[in-house]
Amino acid sequence: MTDQMPFGDMLCERIRAASSQAKLCPLSELEAFAAESRPELSVSGSDDTSLGVEALLADTAHKDIHLMRGSVDTYYFSELSMTEAYAKHLYRVAERDPLKLIADTTRDESRMYPRPTPASSFRESPFLLSEKELEEALLAMKEKAEYSDIQSTKASNGELYLFSTQSLVISHAESLAEWMAVGIAENP
């Protein structure tokens, strides 16, 4: 059956399968698969298959498949079993830049909800930074100008929160952190 399926559809199925397992599907993986099963897809005169696979996916009219271009790879997901928000989390993890991961996630939450982000949330799924990675990233961010908007505040129970001054003023972030860490629990 699958032999008769158009190759673009097969690639989409691989992407959907990955999404349903809460994973992104990197272009590099699709390329490897293509190189193995359909070497003829390589653009003639070049051993780069990416043009072929990417073009094929762009061409294939599957509205559920979306692409995110990163510096490490390009990633696909299907919105049928994954939201763009979750895909973005996975993308930031896949890009292997914890500083940017933390900063971009924090900026999103400071802007959108708005609220500060518990630093501990980066230890949990899907981020799963180790304690050491998190600590080092937070230290390193302080030195970098591009992350100067990312500030932190500690609630009275010791819990650390991050926020972006692009969206939250310090007094607001401080009181929100206290509310989230202590206030909510005291007002069940």
């Binding site: 999404s19 809460a22 079993s81 994954m82 939201t83 763009e84 928000a85 979750y86 989390h89 909800y113 609220r115 982000t117 518990p118 949330s121 949990e124 799924s125 899907p126 989230m180 909510i184």
Partner: peptide, 21 residues
Amino acid sequence: RNPQPWAEFTSPTSRWLAKKG
């Protein structure tokens, strides 16, 4: 409360606590 593949939004104070594990 925690990011889930199906969820667009999360809240660290949500009582929707269920998650894998």
